[in-house]
Amino acid sequence: SRFYGDDDLRRQTAISVAIHVLKSVVKLLHSYAPFITEELWQKFETAAPDLKEGCDLIVAPWPLSDSRWLDEIAEKELSSLQKLVTGVRTIRSEMGVSPASKADVIIRTTDGQAKFIALHHNIISDLARVENLNYGSDLKRPPHSAAIVVEKMELFIPLEGLIDLDKERHRLSNEIDRLQHRQSKILAKLQNDNFMKKAPNEVVKNEKKKLSDMTSTLEKLQQNYEMLQ
């Protein structure tokens, strides 16, 4: 989002950092793919004269680490930001929200977290395709909303208007019934003494794994169904 924003300084900073990172990656890949990396290197040299190194890639200095660039606070914030955006995307995917649709997002936070959300408001909105982002410590969960907890923040996405609630309830109900039927068959097999005595260990192990995976899937589907009530 910083590449296309209205803030020229932020945009140029983002572009410069991106080019520096890409040039470092190209240096590391040069010994494996010399021709294409040399071609890319020359493109970077032309596109970013401020970062020009004035030599061919084959004789360019190897990238070195610099402890001055390490920023544990920034890394922690980026990790939290990634989890938050992933959380919103996960809800959208699991609830069948179209990738083209923007959704409202409500985040229940502490005061410290609210400052973090305010600082990265634009990034969250762009990467998670958010229409309206509301956050605060006293916000309530809207009706018919999906929810997830990320970094002790509660994220809510109102689903009314984004999906056909009746159709999604029907789909989830059918899927739950189908999996419960399969689950009961596997459970009956594992409770059958004759099967347990004669079946190879690998077969029994696979059936137990199927049951475990199916139980986890059912729990998630049932949670999603309850969110729509």
Rank of each mutant, 00 (worst) to 15 (best):
G96P: 07
S98R: 15
S101I: 08
S101Y: 09
K102G: 07
D104N: 15
I106Q: 07
T109Q: 11
D111F: 02
G112H: 08
G112D: 13
A114G: 15
F116W: 11
F116K: 06
I117Q: 12
I117K: 11
I117Y: 10
A118M: 09
H120W: 12
N122Q: 11
N122K: 08
S125K: 14
L127W: 04
A128Y: 11
R129C: 10
E131I: 00
N132F: 05
S137V: 11
D138V: 02
L139C: 01
K140H: 05
R141I: 12
R141T: 14
S145A: 13
V149L: 07
V149C: 03
V149Q: 13
V150E: 15
V150D: 14
E151M: 06
K152G: 08
K152V: 13
M153G: 14
I157N: 05
I157V: 11
P158V: 04
P158R: 08
L159I: 04
E160G: 03
I163N: 01
I163G: 01
L165K: 05
L165W: 02
D166S: 09
D166W: 00
K167F: 06
K167A: 15
E168G: 00
E168W: 01
H170A: 13
H170V: 04
R171L: 03
R171C: 02
R171T: 02
R171N: 07
L172G: 06
L172I: 04
L172Q: 12
D177A: 10
D177L: 09
R178W: 05
L179G: 06
R182G: 07
L187F: 14
L187M: 13
L187W: 11
K189T: 12
N194F: 07
F195W: 08
M196L: 10
K198Q: 03
A199I: 10
P200H: 02
N201I: 09
E202D: 06
E202T: 05
V204P: 04
K205C: 10
E207R: 15
K209I: 15
K209F: 15
L211M: 09
S212P: 00
M214T: 13
T215W: 04
S216C: 06
S216Y: 05
T217I: 13
E219R: 12
